[in-house]
């Protein structure tokens, strides 16, 4: 029986994956086009920017030509994308060096920071949301909900400043800069990353806990939970086997979308803690009008975000047969 059904199932799944991949691809193309267009309307000519206000006109033109900036826009765009695909992200004006190694290193650093934040926040936030839902409308629920909401809405630099003051300056428990000494081991690195990760954790905690809580409450009030309870199942079995799986599906999507906010937050946190991540890189590029670096950084961030939502959707399909298997057979 199972054998007979499998091919159909595979087809349905792969059709879903293909469709989802195509959507992501469209988003990425549009994203790159937007980023490229914004790069075009940046003020002033690049040659003028690089050579300064006193350079003569011919020199500026020549530099523009050598940078390929006098070609039609579509050609420049295609060139840029093609380079990007081969790993050539252009040359930085500021560092006068290829952009790509900077991006790779910064992205690695940022991912380290994000990983620390995620590893801490995802389990605690889900736990918090579940505990709040199981104690719906009781004091512990109020504390988690209102506390979570409050932490979530505070800008990272505000929480960051307060955390630095409390743990770094007054208590002196944690280093206030994320720059660990050269050759530091994994644990030392984590030690240095905890304080920078904290503002991100606080922001994410509220979001994820809130989603987990509302998903849980909905699941607990559902008809099928009633069925499970009235079957005579133990409460623990009802929660573990029936409720959690359905309740946490929407949370997966939220975690993925929060990746986007996380990267946005990295700009601030990395600036605050002087951490050489992608956020600080983009920020410095923006300040210095280093356009190739800026565009590449933003595109990479967009790709990361799009990938995260893609993974979330695929995960949802794995857990939710309604998505995975489509409609009635």
């Amino acid at each position: 029986m199972r054998g007979r059904r499998t091919p159909a199932r595979v087809i349905v799944i792969s059709a879903f994956i293909l469709k989802r991949l195509a959507l992501s691809l469209v988003t990425l193309v549009l994203l790159s086009a937007i980023v490229f267009c914004v790069g075009q309307v940046l003020p002033g000519s690049v040659g003028r920017l690089l050579l300064g206000p006193f350079a003569d006109h011919e020199a500026v033109e020549a530099l523009n030509a050598s940078l390929g900036l006098d070609r039609p826009l579509l050609v420049q765009y295609a060139d840029w994308i093609w380079g990007f695909l081969r790993g050539d992200m252009g040359r930085s004006y500021m560092y006068e060096a290829p952009v790509q190694p900077f991006i790779v290193e910064a992205l690695g650093n940022s991912l380290k920071l994000a990983a620390v934040a995620f590893v801490i926040v995802v389990p605690t936030a889900i736990l918090g949301g579940v505990v709040a839902a199981l104690n719906h409308n009781k004091p512990i629920d109020r504390i988690i909900s209102i506390g979570g909401l409050t932490m979530t809405v505070l800008p990272e630099f505000v929480t960051g400043i307060i955390l630095i003051l409390v743990f770094g300056v007054w208590l002196k428990w944690l280093p206030i800069s994320a720059a660990w000494p050269d050759g530091a081991g994994g644990f030392t690195q984590i030690h240095y990353l905890i304080l920078p990760a904290m503002p991100l954790i606080l922001v994410l905690f509220g979001y994820i806990a809130r989603m987990a809580r509302s998903g849980m409450i909905e699941a607990l009030e559902s008809d099928w939970t009633r069925t499970a309870v009235l079957k005579g199942l133990r409460w623990r079995t009802v929660i573990w086997r029936h409720v959690l799986r359905n309740a946490l599906l929407p949370t997966i999507t939220v975690i993925a979308t929060q990746t986007g906010y996380l990267i946005g937050g990295l700009v601030v946190v990395e600036t605050l803690f002087r951490y050489q991540g992608i956020g600080l890189l983009v920020f410095t590029a923006a300040k210095g009008k280093d356009i190739p670096m800026l565009l590449a950084g933003i595109l990479v961030i967009g790709i990361v975000y799009t990938l995260a939502t893609l993974i979330a959707d695929l995960l949802c399909a794995v857990f939710d047969p309604r998505i995975r298997l489509g409609g009635r057979q």
Binding site: S222, W224, T227, A228, L230, K231, G232, H242, P321, R322
Partner: peptide
């Protein structure tokens, strides 16, 4: 719980919602 497991059962109005979807 034992009474519900052994002696008492219920069939519901909306079967689509009464069964666990996943």
């Amino acid at each position: 719980r034992r009474v519900r497991a052994e002696d008492l059962s219920m069939v519901y109005q909306d079967p689509a919602k009464a069964l666990n979807p996943s």
